[in-house]
Design a protein around this nucleic acid. Sequence first.
DNA 1: ATGGTTATGGACTAAACAGTCCATAATGGT
DNA 2: ACCATTATGGACTGTTTAGTCCATAACCAT
Lengths: 192, 192
Amino acid sequence: MARPRNFDEEDVLRKAMALFWSKGYESTSLAELLQTTGLSKSSLYETFGSKRELFLRAFQLYKKDRMDGLTEGLSHPDAYLALTNAFKTVLDGKGSQMGCMTANEAIELAPHDPKLQEMVESDFYNIEEVFRQTIERGKENGSLRAGLDARKIARFLTVSLQGINVMIRAQAKREVLEDFISVVLEKLNERE
Amino acid sequence: MARPRNFDEEDVLRKAMALFWSKGYESTSLAELLQTTGLSKSSLYETFGSKRELFLRAFQLYKKDRMDGLTEGLSHPDAYLALTNAFKTVLDGKGSQMGCMTANEAIELAPHDPKLQEMVESDFYNIEEVFRQTIERGKENGSLRAGLDARKIARFLTVSLQGINVMIRAQAKREVLEDFISVVLEKLNERE
DNA sequence: ATGGTTATGGACTAAACAGTCCATAATGGT
DNA sequence: ACCATTATGGACTGTTTAGTCCATAACCAT
């Protein structure tokens, strides 16, 4: 019926995501987006409408990808092992150098962009929730001590993760992050 | 002998700092800088050379100001009280909404700008050091338990602070941060 | 008060920016 | 094979960007 697209939308979104993730929104130019996605200007505008809309869709995809990864990483029945593993993965995972796109946008865009503030906030809340559920599960099956305040510890882990993301992006020494994570994880073990 | 400047250099730097702190480097235009400092273009370029050099000087001033504030906040002889107070101050302090400029630049500029990476890294190290010294002092005068690993806990506090800065900029609910800080501070109290 | 010196307003530039538009290319159904 | 439809390359636009430059203004020592 009509001429077909010669690109895959999700593929393009992932390439755009990597760029925005690495450089931020403002510092990523349309020219760069065109170059790394391989799209022409018309195709990009026809398909996504504007730089901002492209960004929003890329960011949504990031949130989904990351949440899927986190949920899967936390799926181990032993909650302590699950959480330990999740935190250690952050040091060597895919976006090891780039930190977390949500943390990046929390700093770059959230303060002056209500829409993004909301997207960032909801992502942080989702992270808190998946941590909380993991902790509840651990309390139930005995892999974490019963006295833990699940919500409080979940918030502790969520904010801790953002600290790690900042340090990663600043290229902090590995030992600093290892020390940090080891102290964070002690919180899950200690007797009161 | 010659026509005098009709502005105070440090005053201008502080105004520029506030702008860069709030909006980041790229998103702050020269036009805005001129408007809020009141300088003319010629004066700004004559005095500071370029947008980047102005930014660097503003950032240096920020680092100095903040380190002075932190050192003073930690001067209380009781190290536990000193640290408690320092963390609680972050919630209501001056740049309450804007987070920490160093954390902001860690995310915006450090990954692609070696000079800034270095400035950010050294700031984080200085924070770690002032925490460490406070902890050592606490161990000596009995306000903290002797078993603490000062460097490790100092790193824990440093990274924790960056987590808080991200959340503040994302306008996280106060209770989330209060929960976080309360867990962080427990680390200073607990028996092993 | 005049001259040497620096500060400053404002016109100017070149490049980069996001975004628009249209003529043409490529397709698949008939 | 042709038509209706959508995709695309590339020319084009208006704005904003950081930065330059020069003629003039303001000052202070003499």
